[in-house]
């Protein structure tokens, strides 16, 4: 009898300890749950090297993954009971109840990693595999319907949402796509600097020309996807007809832009729509 009591006490003590030890685990799990978000950030990075645009994007994304963890609990719920069940249900019942919400994640916590990993692959495999940016937006859309239907049953539903996004959702996704790209800040300073340095190497200034320091030349450049220049047009073409010094300066600029030695420009190909046309402003003021 005593032995049983001692065992019972020991058991309770272990349960309590587990509960206590599990608590910090919960917070850790939450952090862990956030980590997959970091994976998303990695996906973002190649798109926007620019520091400014990056932060706004990862934030919205964390939301969807958070939504996902909620579904796992139901799944996880079944497994945790088994351990207690075999044992006596008496006291444990109350303890799990106060922290049921917490406990569920706690206990899932350990298994969740594999489970989430298992579960996620089922859902996520399609997204990363196909075209990155479009699929991401599609992924978000997927999650919206799941939120509405959210139940434990949702698990089994993954296939239906895939069928759903076929028409309207793709359109939505495509229409939403440009939103995350901030066209004005799309290229980071370092990326622009890289191109700038390339062009500077090929800009052979007509140094010593009269008033050369007062002549700024603007060129609109139409780019090919591979970073080579398809077309370069002066914005102040008319001035070249009247001012031979300006024409010399403008031609030096055109030669710089068209010089094959300095091409292709090192621009991120996935944001071609950002740099498809650019205005290059050649300002010799600081040089001459």
């Amino acid at each position: 009898m005593r032995r049983n009591i001692v065992l019972s006490l020991l058991f309770h003590a272990t349960v309590i300890i587990v509960a206590i030890v599990g608590l910090p685990d919960i917070s850790k799990r939450e952090l862990n749950l956030d980590r997959p978000i970091a994976v998303d950030i990695v996906n973002v990075a190649p798109e926007t090297n620019a520091p400014p645009p990056a932060p706004p994007r990862p934030e919205p994304r964390p939301a969807p993954p958070k939504a996902q963890p909620t579904p796992p609990p139901p799944q996880a719920a079944p497994p945790p009971p088994p351990p207690p069940k075999p044992q006596a249900e008496p006291a444990p019942a109350p303890t799990p109840k106060p922290a049921p919400a917490k406990d569920k994640p706690k206990e899932e916590a350990r298994p969740p990693e594999p489970r989430l990993a298992k579960v996620q692959p089922k859902r996520k495999p399609p997204p990363p595999d196909e075209m990155a940016s479009v699929l991401k937006t599609l992924e978000e859309i997927k999650q919206r319907p799941t939120k509405t239907d959210e139940t434990a049953k949702d698990r089994k539903k993954p296939p239906p949402p895939e069928e759903k996004f076929d028409v309207a959702e793709i359109q939505k996704a495509l229409s939403q796509r440009p939103r995350p790209h901030d066209p004005s800040k799309a290229l980071s300073i370092s990326e622009i600097d890289l191109v700038r340095r390339q062009i500077e190497q090929c800009w052979n200034l007509p140094a010593g020309a009269k008033d050369a320091h007062k002549m700024t030349v603007e060129v609109r450049v139409i780019m090919n996807v591979d970073g080579t220049v398809r077309e370069a047009n002066l914005l102040q073409q008319a001035r070249t007809l009247t001012d031979p010094f300006y024409r010399a300066m403008a031609e030096s600029v055109i030669r710089a832009v068209l010089n094959p030695r300095c091409q292709p420009f090192k621009l991120p190909p996935d944001r071609y729509d950002v740099w498809q046309t650019m205005v290059l402003n050649f300002d010799p003021q600081g040089i001459l």
Partner: peptide, 17 residues
């Protein structure tokens, strides 16, 4: 609404052509 990408080139080389 779309702002065109604009790059200022403020340095060059002075080499014989």
């Amino acid at each position: 609404a779309r702002a065109e990408l604009r790059i200022d080139i403020t340095r060059g080389t002075v080499e014989p052509m």
